[in-house]
Amino acid sequence: MITLTGLAWLLIFQSLGEVLTRLLHLRLPGPVIGLLLLVAALRLERVRAPVGAAAEVLLSHFSLLFVPVGVGVITHLDLLAQYGLRLLVVLLLSTWLGLIVTALVLRRLLRGGQGEDPAA
């Protein structure tokens, strides 16, 4: 029941996000506005416990939610036939660059900050 209450809260915040982004002509997607509002609302105990329960369920099966869109690749087979190899190169290289750069920057900034006092 607590998970259902949490799901209800998530849907309420998503709906709020959709309404706000349309009324105010914001450039943020509705769920992102919902996310920001929910972060603020998590101070409230009655929101926090149910949302936590629902979030744990949804996020632990997050990768399942990408399957329907992923299967959509079959509607773009002509595109893959035409550009497949080049697209593969783009996806591989850019994802690896993103992974490495993020990890290196974070390592540098986190260890750089702590590494000064022990004077190794």
Binding site: L7, L10, L11, F13, Q14, G17, P29, G30, P31, V32, G34, L35, L36, L38, V39, L42, V51, G52, A54, A55, E56, L58, L59, F62, L65, F66
Partner: peptide, 10 residues
């Protein structure tokens, strides 16, 4: 996916 994005607040 929509509610899951919102749930990233958690």
């Amino acid at each position: 996916l929509g509610p899951a994005v919102v749930s990233l607040a958690w």
